[in-house]
Amino acid sequence: MGQNLWLSRCLGEKDQRSANATAENGIFLAMTSYLVFAVTGMLISRPFFTLQTSSAVIAEEGFQYMWIVSVFGIGLFLQTMNEKILASTGRTNLTMVSQLAGAAINIVLDPIMIFGLFGFPALGVAGAAIATVTAVSWGCGSTAASTGRSRSGFGVSGLTGESSGTFTVWVCRPSSCSPSAAS
């Protein structure tokens, strides 16, 4: 929550350098958090589920789900950060759309991948994890595309930032787009 508040403040003050640094730091922290989550998930998933149940089948399925979500869960962290960037620039409608679309994708993919519908193999609990990761990855991609617009909306333009390097936060309407222009 602090990242998007600080980013909003920087943009309001037309402090492009601080806005860029805030976006860069937020994305770095999201990726670092993912790495901690992935390593932790890989290391403690099996012992955790083994301690929770005496059923080897349930423990194995829990481990499979947790391992898939932990290892391939980078989309969750980056989607959350992209949503904070969008919210700080006033585009909360895009975060809502990405979350709703991700939930709909998960609802559709769950039975397909769990039970093996439409030619997909039945994957059980692993299929549920794959459906979840796929839906979250789609949400991440949609928020990244929304923050990556530099000419037709609000966002962060990658690799072409002016001030501190990697990112430029753009706040504009399609007719007048420039770094941190008041909308």
Score class of each variant (00 low, 15 high):
104 A>C: 06
67 W>P: 00
52 Q>V: 11
82 N>A: 10
170 W>R: 06
82 N>K: 00
115 F>V: 00
13 E>F: 13
141 G>C: 13
112 I>G: 05
81 M>E: 15
8 S>P: 00
152 S>A: 08
83 E>K: 05
179 P>A: 10
136 V>A: 04
158 G>D: 10
128 A>V: 04
54 S>D: 11
121 P>H: 13
99 Q>E: 03
88 S>D: 10
96 M>G: 01
130 I>Y: 07
120 F>R: 02
23 A>Q: 06
104 A>N: 03
127 G>S: 03
17 R>I: 12
35 L>D: 02
179 P>V: 15
125 V>G: 04
132 T>E: 08
89 T>P: 05
131 A>H: 09
115 F>H: 06
128 A>E: 03
159 L>W: 07
159 L>H: 01
133 V>K: 06
123 L>C: 02
42 M>V: 09
142 S>T: 09
65 Y>Q: 02
76 L>P: 00
33 S>V: 01
89 T>F: 04
119 G>I: 06
45 S>T: 07
175 S>D: 15
106 N>T: 06
60 E>N: 12
9 R>Y: 15
103 A>E: 01
179 P>W: 05
170 W>P: 01
69 V>L: 04
103 A>W: 14
15 D>E: 14
111 P>A: 04
107 I>E: 04
30 A>E: 09
166 T>D: 09
55 S>E: 13
112 I>L: 14
55 S>W: 13
145 A>I: 09
35 L>P: 00
54 S>I: 05
57 V>S: 04
27 I>T: 11
179 P>I: 11
92 T>Y: 11
165 G>N: 11
132 T>C: 05
167 F>Q: 02
76 L>I: 04
37 F>Y: 15
49 F>D: 01
161 G>I: 08
99 Q>M: 06
101 A>I: 15
48 F>A: 02
11 L>M: 13
105 I>Q: 05
36 V>W: 08
132 T>Y: 09
120 F>V: 06
20 N>K: 01
23 A>D: 07
47 P>S: 05
131 A>K: 07
158 G>L: 14
58 I>H: 06
164 S>G: 01
74 I>G: 12
10 C>R: 08
75 G>M: 10
81 M>S: 04
52 Q>P: 00
98 S>I: 06
174 P>N: 09
83 E>L: 04
33 S>K: 01
81 M>F: 14
17 R>A: 15
154 F>M: 08
73 G>Y: 13
127 G>T: 05
42 M>P: 00
134 T>I: 14
6 W>S: 08
163 S>K: 14
2 G>R: 10
121 P>C: 07
107 I>H: 02
127 G>F: 07
135 A>V: 09
94 L>W: 13
42 M>C: 12
173 R>H: 12
181 A>Y: 14
86 L>H: 08
52 Q>T: 08
166 T>E: 07
44 I>V: 15
3 Q>D: 11
80 T>C: 06
94 L>N: 03
